[in-house]
Protein backbone atom coordinates (compact mmCIF):
# COMPACT_ATOMS: atom_id res chain seq x y z
CA UNK A 1 0.00 0.00 0.00
CA UNK A 2 1.57 3.32 -0.99
CA UNK A 3 2.23 5.85 1.74
CA UNK A 4 2.02 9.61 1.64
CA UNK A 5 4.77 11.74 3.16
CA UNK A 6 5.25 15.50 3.04
CA UNK A 7 8.52 17.05 1.87
CA UNK A 8 8.65 20.72 2.88
CA UNK A 9 4.84 20.59 2.94
CA UNK A 10 4.35 18.98 -0.49
CA UNK A 11 2.77 15.48 -0.50
CA UNK A 12 4.73 12.67 -2.17
CA UNK A 13 3.88 8.99 -2.61
CA UNK A 14 6.32 6.65 -0.83
CA UNK A 15 6.84 2.90 -0.54
CA UNK A 16 6.97 0.91 2.71
CA UNK A 17 10.65 0.33 3.60
CA UNK A 18 11.79 3.29 1.53
CA UNK A 19 14.41 5.42 3.25
CA UNK A 20 14.03 9.18 3.54
CA UNK A 21 17.19 9.58 1.41
CA UNK A 22 15.82 7.40 -1.40
CA UNK A 23 12.57 9.35 -1.31
CA UNK A 24 14.34 12.73 -1.43
CA UNK A 25 16.49 11.58 -4.36
CA UNK A 26 13.33 10.38 -6.12
CA UNK A 27 11.89 13.89 -5.78
CA UNK A 28 14.91 15.17 -7.73
CA UNK A 29 16.85 16.60 -4.78
CA UNK A 30 20.58 15.97 -4.31
CA UNK A 31 20.95 18.23 -1.24
CA UNK A 32 18.66 18.74 1.75
CA UNK A 33 20.86 20.22 4.43
CA UNK A 34 23.21 23.18 4.70
CA UNK A 35 26.37 23.15 6.79
CA UNK A 36 26.72 25.04 10.07
CA UNK A 37 29.73 27.15 9.13
CA UNK A 38 29.76 27.67 5.39
CA UNK A 39 26.06 27.16 4.65
CA UNK A 40 27.10 24.68 1.94
CA UNK A 41 24.61 22.15 0.54
CA UNK A 42 24.86 18.50 1.56
CA UNK A 43 22.92 15.33 0.83
CA UNK A 44 23.72 11.62 0.70
CA UNK A 45 27.36 10.61 1.10
CA UNK A 46 28.11 7.29 2.87
CA UNK A 47 24.60 5.88 2.66
CA UNK A 48 25.02 3.64 5.71
CA UNK A 49 24.76 5.96 8.70
CA UNK A 50 28.45 6.73 9.20
CA UNK A 51 29.08 10.24 7.83
CA UNK A 52 26.07 12.21 9.20
CA UNK A 53 26.00 14.35 6.05
CA UNK A 54 22.39 13.54 5.12
CA UNK A 55 20.76 14.93 8.29
CA UNK A 56 17.17 16.04 7.87
CA UNK A 57 14.24 17.00 10.14
CA UNK A 58 11.44 14.44 10.43
CA UNK A 59 8.21 15.44 12.19
CA UNK A 60 9.93 18.44 13.74
CA UNK A 61 12.90 16.51 15.11
CA UNK A 62 16.23 17.50 13.48
CA UNK A 63 19.40 15.45 12.96
CA UNK A 64 17.76 12.32 11.55
CA UNK A 65 20.02 10.35 9.20
CA UNK A 66 18.00 10.21 5.97
CA UNK A 67 19.92 7.16 4.71
CA UNK A 68 18.82 5.03 7.68
CA UNK A 69 15.35 6.34 8.47
CA UNK A 70 12.45 4.49 6.86
CA UNK A 71 9.42 6.60 5.99
CA UNK A 72 6.11 6.22 7.82
CA UNK A 73 2.74 7.29 6.47
CA UNK A 74 2.17 10.99 7.13
CA UNK A 75 5.83 11.81 7.94
CA UNK A 76 6.71 15.48 7.57
CA UNK A 77 10.24 15.81 6.18
CA UNK A 78 11.93 19.18 6.21
CA UNK A 79 15.30 20.31 4.96
CA UNK A 80 17.69 21.38 7.69
CA UNK A 81 19.73 24.59 7.88
CA UNK A 82 22.88 24.41 9.97
CA UNK A 83 22.43 23.41 13.61
CA UNK A 84 18.71 23.20 14.31
CA UNK A 85 16.92 22.68 17.61
CA UNK A 86 13.80 20.51 17.87
CA UNK A 87 10.73 22.50 16.79
CA UNK A 88 7.55 22.99 18.81
CA UNK A 89 5.97 20.03 17.03
CA UNK A 90 8.98 17.89 18.02
CA UNK A 91 8.47 14.17 17.84
CA UNK A 92 7.75 12.55 21.19
CA UNK A 93 7.81 8.94 22.27
Amino acid sequence: MPLTVYVDGVPHPARPGQTVAALLLATGRTAWRSTRHGGRPRGLFCGIGVCHDCLVAVNGLPDVRACLREVCDGDRIETQDGATLPGPAGERA
Binding site: L25, T30, L44, F45, C46, G47, I48, C67
Partner: peptide
Protein backbone atom coordinates in the same frame (compact mmCIF):
# COMPACT_ATOMS: atom_id res chain seq x y z
CA UNK B 1 29.69 18.49 -3.53
CA UNK B 2 26.25 16.87 -3.36
CA UNK B 3 26.15 13.99 -5.84
CA UNK B 4 29.58 12.73 -4.76
CA UNK B 5 28.85 9.57 -2.75
CA UNK B 6 30.72 6.49 -1.61
CA UNK B 7 30.66 3.35 -3.74
CA UNK B 8 28.90 1.63 -0.84
CA UNK B 9 26.18 4.28 -0.77
CA UNK B 10 25.54 3.85 -4.49
CA UNK B 11 25.26 0.08 -4.14
CA UNK B 12 23.10 0.20 -0.99
CA UNK B 13 20.74 2.61 -2.71
Amino acid sequence: LPGVVTAGAARAL
